[in-house]
């Protein structure tokens, strides 16, 4: 299905927002402004946005520890996300979650997740709820190459097939599970072959190519919506930064991330294609770049200025108030 110009500009804006967000968090973290564990999504933007442009707000996703991109693409408020990463009362989770637990159920975002493989069972549940309630919504579980080996992922793919759930499993294979190569840790020829073993169609796409992801995800999501069950997509991609901020990445060959950035960057690929063939001018993209930079600047300034959670918040929300 051909994308309209507005949709293409939206895709670019989302990818640029993720990139700008992550680049800025990288800088602020290095400057000591951000505490805790932070995992950046830079380089993988086309995966999140390619999938999410096929979803509605009511559709649900479960994310990973590397979740900022999924949140932004799913429509979580960007300043609230930044505030959460700074541990502020104004954050998505009122400062109680942090980078690894940003969630917004109203936006269909069931949470980044600190547990590798934590999300797929949850998405089976979201997809089951959609099926039981007859909403035609779908659930998308994002996993990495690390989680692709977890039992929860296998069990969930099996359950999704057994229950014929409107669930899509999107594996973002960035080549490394923390510091261990995917080639070492995945005991199968390909993730797609493995998924087919669970009885679902599977595709392998270039995760830097927004259009490839969008098309594969579109097909899987249409299939799920029409009641034809789960699908699997492997997006092969690069991460520009380490497993976590502060990771020296000595396990990677020198220049690997730089080469990906120079030769296979999702934003460059996207811009090149749409300015050649979709009637979009470079200036239109530059305008978006400027607007996004201002958005992220504003998000960082307000996050820095926002209040920490009140001491009274410490013990609240463990249980429901009767």
């Amino acid at each position: 299905m051909a994308l309209t110009k507005d949709e293409l500009l939206k895709a670019y804006r989302l990818m640029r927002t993720i990139r700008e967000f992550e680049e800025r968090v990288h800088v602020e973290f290095a400057a000591g402004e951000i505490e805790g564990f932070v995992h950046l999504y830079a380089g993988e933007e086309a995966c999140a946005v390619g999938v999410m442009l096929n979803l509605t707000k009511a559709d649900r996703i479960a994310s990973t520890h590397r979740g900022h991109g999924h949140c932004i693409a799913k429509g979580v408020d960007v300043p609230a996300m930044m505030a959460e990463i700074y541990g502020r009362a104004t954050g998505s989770c009122r400062g109680k979650g942090g980078s690894m637990h940003i969630a917004d159920l109203d936006a269909g975002m069931m949470g980044a997740n600190g547990i590798v493989g934590g999300g797929p069972p949850l998405i089976c549940g979201a997809a089951l709820a959609a099926k039981v309630q007859g909403t035609r919504q779908v659930g998308v579980a994002f996993i990495g190459d690390g989680a692709s080996n977890q039992g929860t992922t296998f069990e969930s793919m099996n359950l999704a097939t057994v229950w014929n759930l409107p669930a899509i499993f999107v594996a973002e294979n960035n080549g490394y599970a923390e510091a261990t190569a995917a080639d070492y840790a995945i005991g199968a020829g390909s993730l797609a072959d493995r998924a087919e073993g669970f009885g679902m169609p599977a595709a392998t796409v270039d995760g830097h190519d927004f259009f490839a992801v969008h098309e594969a995800a579109g097909e899987a999501i249409r299939r799920a919506r029409s009641g034809d069950g789960p699908s699997f997509i492997e997006c092969q991609v690069n991460r520009y930064y380490g497993h976590y901020e502060g990771d020296a990445q000595t396990y990677r060959p020198p220049g690997e991330a730089e080469a990906a950035r120079a030769n296979h960057d999702c934003l460059d690929m996207f811009a090149g294609r749409v300015t050649k063939s979709a009637g979009i001018e470079r200036e239109e993209l530059d305008d978006i770049d400027r607007a996004v930079a201002a958005l992220i600047d504003g998000a960082v300034s307000s996050a820095k200025a926002d209040p920490a959670p009140a001491a009274s918040e410490f013990l609240t929300d463990v249980y429901v108030d009767y």
């Binding site: 649900r60 069931m110 797929p120 069972p121 949850l122 549940g125 979201a126 709820a129």
Partner: peptide
Amino acid sequence: GAAVGAAASGL
């Protein structure tokens, strides 16, 4: 986990 996810999704 599916029960947990379904609970967070309205069931």
